[in-house]
């Protein structure tokens, strides 16, 4: 597989007074070039921290303690965790090669700067252009992301825009330097459903145009179904299942994925039937668990197998479909 980014054995930990939180605890991921990888999981499973780790934007008391993140560029590979977090090299990658957009469009733009100037700033940072050219490019990209009257909007402040428009502005800023990889951390969670659909459509359109990879973090399986080429399911700081979107939805190979899918409302379920919640809750983050981290909530848990030893690694169920469930072994065919 041709990937843009390879994460190996990533550990990101937060050293608090109460103890150490292993927010990311051995993540392995490959982000395919030009495609969309969705990372799903409950709140607190380490999805966002993984994303922030890629850009080295983990603030104290957190730190990447182990593992590697390799960005595959035309000029050659570069190991991001070895770079100083706010050094020149890392800053050149941020925004130019790897851009990121955030969950809250209401707060992700500075309230005291015009929207246009914030976009033009990104252009000026990474491209050798003068102010006028930067402005022209900003207006152009604002038009491209579907902001009506981009010339007029350029001089507006965030509070003069709706949430949907702001998120378009944020996307414009992220894409202004034509990045190879866009990290989107729940980009539509705070938006209305209709606006959500528009924003997702826009992202796909621009992805095709710029041939860029998207790492989409979400807890919304509906968004996954719409957007994903590949899906990584995370639980308690680790990827527990990885596969193509078709495989994940049709033949999940981890009890946690199955449980997530069962908790999803569909149009065709009977009216009186109840949605199934996953029993129990995510374990205390300070805790250390033996064996599979999901065993405390798993219906298929096999005492003696699932609750002892090291955390299980991903193993191939078939080509391109990996699971960390100790009870699911490689199968000859779909079952």
């Amino acid at each position: 597989m041709d990937s843009i980014l390879t994460i190996e054995n990533l550990h990101t930990q937060f050293f608090l007074d109460e103890g150490t939180v292993r927010a990311v605890d051995g993540v392995n991921l490959q982000i395919p070039r030009g495609k969309t990888l969705c990372v799903v999981g409950e709140s607190g499973c380490g999805k966002s921290i993984t994303a922030f780790s890629i850009l080295q934007m983990i603030s104290r008391p957190g730190r990447i303690t182990d593992g590697s993140i390799v960005l595959h560029r035309e000029e050659g590979d570069i190991e991001l965790t070895q770079l100083p977090p706010d050094g020149k090299q890392m800053r050149r990658i941020r925004g130019a090669e790897v851009a990121m957009i955030f969950q809250e469009p209401m707060t992700s733009l500075s309230p005291v700067h015009t929207v246009g100037s914030q976009i033009a700033e990104a252009v000026r940072l990474h491209m050798r252009v003068d102010k006028r050219e930067a402005r022209a490019r900003a207006v152009h990209i604002m038009e491209r992301v579907g902001m009506p009257d981009p010339e007029g909007r350029y001089a507006q402040y965030p509070h003069e825009m709706s949430g949907g428009l702001r998120q378009r502005a944020v996307i414009a800023m992220a894409l202004s330097c034509r990045p190879q990889l866009l990290i989107a951390d729940e980009p539509t969670t705070a938006l209305d459903v209709t606006i959500q659909a528009q924003i997702l459509a826009l992202m796909r359109e621009l992805q095709a145009e710029l041939d860029m990879a998207i790492l989409l973090i979400t807890h919304d399986l509906g968004v996954v179904a719409q957007m994903a080429d590949e899906v990584a399911v995370m639980y308690w700081g680790r990827v527990v299942e990885y596969g193509s979107v078709e495989r994940i939805f049709s033949a999940p190979q981890h009890p946690y994925t199955e449980a997530l899918l069962r908790s999803l409302p569909g149009l065709h379920i009977e009216r009186k039937s109840q949605l199934q919640a996953i029993r129990g809750s995510v374990p205390d983050p300070f805790q250390r668990l033996d064996g599979c981290a999901f065993h405390t909530r798993c219906d298929e848990c096999e005492p003696g197998l699932c609750d002892t030893g090291q955390r299980p690694l991903l193993h191939a169920i078939e080509t391109g479909h990996l699971s960390a469930c100790l009870r699911r072994k490689e199968r000859p065919s779909d079952g």
């Binding site: 800053r91 941020r94 955030f102 992220a174």
Partner: peptide, 15 residues
């Protein structure tokens, strides 16, 4: 800790 600071940092601004 506000998000716009994160956005600006993700743009590649120096600290």
């Amino acid at each position: 800790p506000k998000q716009y600071v994160m956005t600006a940092r993700a743009k590649g601004l120096s600290p």
